[in-house]
Design a protein around this nucleic acid. Sequence first.
DNA 1: TAAGTCACTTACCAAAAGGTGCCTACTTAC
DNA 2: GTAAGTAGGCACCTTTTGGTAAGTGACTTA
Lengths: 128, 128
Amino acid sequence: MTYPHERFAVKAACDLNEKNVSCCPVERLLGVVSGQWTAYLLWVLHQNGPQRFGALQKLIPGISTKVLTERLRMLEASGLLLREQAATIPPQVTYSLTPRGLELRALMDGLGDVARRWDAEGWRPPVR
Amino acid sequence: MTYPHERFAVKAACDLNEKNVSCCPVERLLGVVSGQWTAYLLWVLHQNGPQRFGALQKLIPGISTKVLTERLRMLEASGLLLREQAATIPPQVTYSLTPRGLELRALMDGLGDVARRWDAEGWRPPVR
DNA sequence: TAAGTCACTTACCAAAAGGTGCCTACTTAC
DNA sequence: GTAAGTAGGCACCTTTTGGTAAGTGACTTA
């Protein structure tokens, strides 16, 4: 079944993964989560629970609506995110982690731990 | 003590930031690690131990010398990788994880676990 | 003498990714 | 009667990225 909102961005979602159709499991998983903003988006959802589109934009300063939409579609198509639309006016769309998405919990927690520790140590990425 | 949105000062700091210098620790860490090939490169080094340039090319089929070089330089500048060059002819360059790079061990192991489990379950990224 | 080795570097080009502004639908609030 | 609010879609354009091919140095091997 195809929903109206899928017209745009499903192709984009697939493009992000085109190269990972046949490869090792780790490479395949990384193909989904290692794009720009993607892992951070998942982390934000792990930290803050289900969020609406507008809330995600505020939680991820700097992301454009285009990219946010693409990432949400792609993660939904990957089975990590659930999109629920309330038929209200204006519409309310809520994104939450699926059970599979929640399986990343340990990874996300570990990510936060390392990030906070290194930050406290004053670690900074190289200036490009 | 959540990041990055819950506090005015933090949000302001985010907004004032140049786009390369992210304020949230998780965002900063992901900025280094989440480029194409980057996390996979780290995973390969975790799995296989120190490797020479040519060996990495074989362990990561499909990566070009240009991108492999760029990623290695970037991770070296980030303090995650150590580059050791033997002054032989032809030169022998070996890349290994620094102590900081080794701090990602738990994350890499978790990554491998999830990837293998999902793979065994038949999970696949979305394809056109 | 020529070719091969290793780890790149550089230049060039095509493709992909991302930003921006404008647009939609519909109702409620001013 | 007009503005605001929600969740995007779409077209256009610029920036970024990645691949390819060719070259480098200094020595060894055929």
